[in-house]
């Protein structure tokens, strides 16, 4: 378990972290999710020992590591741009940590081979990083970090430099790897889909603070504030209430509790259909329907419909201001 208590960090006038506390459960895959500048990378680096906190403490598996250098924290770190040792082969890269610990050569070779097989780079031992693709380099980086059997694995936007398809493949692969290896893993990302799909536990950060911590369902269905709601999924605003667009049902007849709106545009996006509407007060809103629902209604531009809010009423938030309007 990682326990971060009241950590603050400033870079000159800029506050990167303001009195942040977090507990990362043992063996979990936890995501630090947030926009750029929220402080998530800084927090990760402080946990890893690559930055020092100005205040607060970090405890890893019972040891206070607040003032301990990264060499001695027993962590593994994976960087966004791989940080591959360009002048060394894949074998030497992966075996680097073991070599530093003066492990005998045959043991290093055995472990490197084992890891390369686990990460799917079996025949690549003699190659150089420049001969690998981005995805392969990152897998090598992972193998390298795991070689020294870290207590904790820290990943700083590990898939950020890869293209979309590789990103999706690799994150699924990471989840499977985690299920096998069970190392406490902390992942920094700005991609909410990534966090939702593979993390057990998500800490949402904004502007040097942690906004909410919880499982994916909990955060999506019961967001603590408009920011978290907007970051994790689409939001529509109807009469001052923030609601998920797929919780808006469209009816062809008025009913108790429904609101009148006019259809502006219907977009067919594969499985889902997006209906852009304008409320009677002129404010725009959009609803997400399944193909089936849309087919049943046979909507066209200009139609008048009535909105009803369905779904779990706990999944809605009342918005005091216009800060968050129909966010796509």
């Amino acid at each position: 378990m990682i326990t971060v208590s009241n950590v603050s960090k400033h870079f000159g006038d800029f506050t990167a972290l303001d009195d942040v506390s977090l507990e990362v459960p043992d063996g979990s895959l936890t995501a630090l999710l947030g926009p750029s500048g929220s402080g998530k990378s800084t927090l990760l680096r402080i946990i890893g020992g690559l930055e020092w906190a100005d205040a607060g403490s970090v405890v890893i598996h019972g040891d206070d590591v607040t003032n301990v250098p990264p060499q001695k924290r027993g962590i593994g770190f994976v960087f966004q741009h791989y940080a591959a040792f360009k002048h060394m082969t894949v074998r030497d890269n992966v075996g680097f940590g073991l070599k530093i610990r003066k492990t005998p050569k045959d043991k290093i070779d055995a472990r490197v081979d084992e890891l390369l097989n686990i990460v799917g780079l079996g025949g690549f031992a003699k190659r150089y990083p420049s001969q690998l693709s981005g995805g392969q380099r990152q897998r090598m980086a992972l193998a390298r970090a795991l070689a020294v059997e870290p207590k904790v694995l820290l990943l700083d936007e590990p898939f950020g430099a890869l293209d979309a398809k590789v990103r999706t493949e690799l994150r699924e692969w990471l989840r499977r790897l985690h299920d096998e290896v069970h190392v406490t893993t902390l992942l920094v990302t700005h991609d909410q889909e990534e966090a939702l799909s593979i993390a057990d536990n998500i800490a949402v950060m904004d502007n040097a603070h942690i906004e909410q911590v919880g499982g994916p369902r909990e955060l999506y269905d019961r967001p603590a504030n408009p920011f978290v709601m907007g970051f994790l999924g689409p939001v529509a605003k109807v009469d001052g209430t923030l609601v998920r667009p797929h919780d808006i049902a469209l009816r062809t007849q008025p009913d108790a509790g429904t609101r009148e709106a006019q259809v502006m545009r219907v977009s067919h996006l594969g499985f889902e259909v997006r209906v852009d509407l304008e409320l009677s007060d002129g404010k725009p809103v959009f609803a997400q329907l399944t193909r089936y629902e849309a087919a049943q209604l046979e909507l066209a531009g200009g139609d008048i419909v009535w909105l009803a809010l369905t779904g779990d009423s706990d999944a809605r938030l009342v918005s005091e201001d216009d800060r968050l309007d129909a966010v796509a």
């Binding site: 890893g48 970090a145 020294v148």
Partner: peptide
């Protein structure tokens, strides 16, 4: 500095 940071997380001292 990334490569150097990576090396330090893997246990290398500043000189190493």
């Amino acid at each position: 500095t990334e490569q150097e940071e990576a090396a330090s997380t893997l246990g290398a001292s500043r000189w190493q």
